[in-house]
């Protein structure tokens, strides 16, 4: 027997039998940012036999403070995160198979990613993608370990199809806007903590241990935590996990639409689900970041990450100065989540 996993095998809840189950598992990680880096590294070292990691972004200098799979050379080369992650994970553990996919996860491609996986680890950066994954996870009966963090605060919830409420039950509509790591900042320890909860849940699930349907939050800076048993919140009429599901986030109508406005060097983004933005709060936050900005009762125009962004009350946005849809969606998600 190789000594590689000996310490984990001596941990009796896993043991040699559990280690074999990990070896046989194929886990999907959606997002290769901070949470994705941390989860992927732990799962790779733990010997999960096959890991697929998907991300649409490339590595930037501001990622290095917490995204542990990357180094300065990835910034210099503008390496896609999924590619850099695959390379690093393969160097950590050549025993396992790692597949990095450079893609924006949406309702059209999510089902192909989800089918055949034992588990999905959430490492996304926005709610819409999470609701899309949630739909696919319920439809194809794959557990989805929700995790998110901002500032020093994070939350986790293991969504088990057929057992727990789904994400859609817990937040019956898309939040109008969110704090994001790009507007409110984030510290590395909360990322590690949320990822640790997710990976622990993953190890438990993959080795057959029982999970509890707890929504948990932690604020590591202010030393606070909360746990709520949310099994009561499962909705009979949920459009994702209820009696008559329509999986709204997998349909074309439910998708955020992007289009390049020809000749204007601008990308327009229209949310698939109506949202009403509060410019007051967003304005305060942008002001504190020193972003130059103009607001009237219809729109907010600001300079963000070197682009001029115009946001309308209904969540529509124009990202000027680019024809790159992926870049524009990234900016949009980092701005309002």
């Amino acid at each position: 027997m190789s000594s590689r996993y000996s310490r984990q095998e001596r941990f009796s809840p896993i043991g040699i039998a559990g280690q074999e189950k990990l070896r046989d598992a194929h886990v999907l990680i959606i997002g290769a940012g901070a949470l994705g880096s941390s989860s992927a590294e732990m799962l790779a070292r733990a010997g999960v036999g096959k890991i697929t990691i998907v991300d649409r972004d490339y590595v930037e200098m501001s990622n290095l403070q917490r995204q542990q799979l990357y180094s300065e050379i990835d910034v210099i080369n503008k390496n896609p995160k999924a590619v850099a992650a695959q390379k690093r994970l393969e160097a950590i553990n050549s025993d396992i198979r790692v597949q990095g996919i450079v893609a924006d996860v949406n309702g059209m491609n999510v089902e192909d990613l989800v089918i055949g996986k034992a588990l999905i680890v959430d490492a996304g950066d926005n709610f819409e993608t999470r609701l899309i994954i949630n739909d696919a996870a319920v439809k194809h009966n794959v557990p989805f370990l929700f995790g998110a963090c901002v500032g020093s605060y994070g939350i986790t919830f293991p969504m088990i199809p057929g057992e727990t409420p789904c994400l859609h039950c817990l937040m019956d509509h898309l939040p109008a806007q969110n704090l994001t790591c790009d507007t409110a900042g984030v510290i590395s320890p909360i990322v590690q903590l949320v990822a640790s909860y997710q990976v622990t849940t993953a190890l438990k699930f993959l080795t057959g241990a029982k999970l509890s349907p707890l929504l948990q939050s932690v604020d590591i800076w202010n030393d606070e935590n909360a746990k709520i048993r949310v099994d009561r919140l499962k909705k009979e009429n949920c459009k994702t996990c209820g009696n008559n599901p329509s999986f709204p986030y997998l349909s074309f109508e439910g998708q955020t639409k992007t289009e390049i406005l020809c000749g204007r060097n601008t990308v327009q983004i229209r949310p698939g689900v109506a949202r009403i933005l509060s410019f007051e709060e967003l304005g305060r936050r942008l002001e504190s970041l020193g972003c130059e900005m103009t607001v009237n009762s219809y729109l907010l125009s600001c300079s963000f990450e070197g682009r001029r962004v115009v946001l309308f009350k209904d969540g529509r946005a124009l990202i000027h100065g680019t024809n790159d849809i992926t870049e524009a969606r990234g900016i949009y998600n980092r701005l309002i989540g």
């Binding site: 959430d122 490492a123 926005n126 963090c149 939040p175 790591c181 949320v194």
Partner: peptide
């Protein structure tokens, strides 16, 4: 009281 709010980052 237990109070948990959702965030979107990661």
């Amino acid at each position: 009281v237990e109070m948990i709010h959702f965030v979107g980052g990661g």
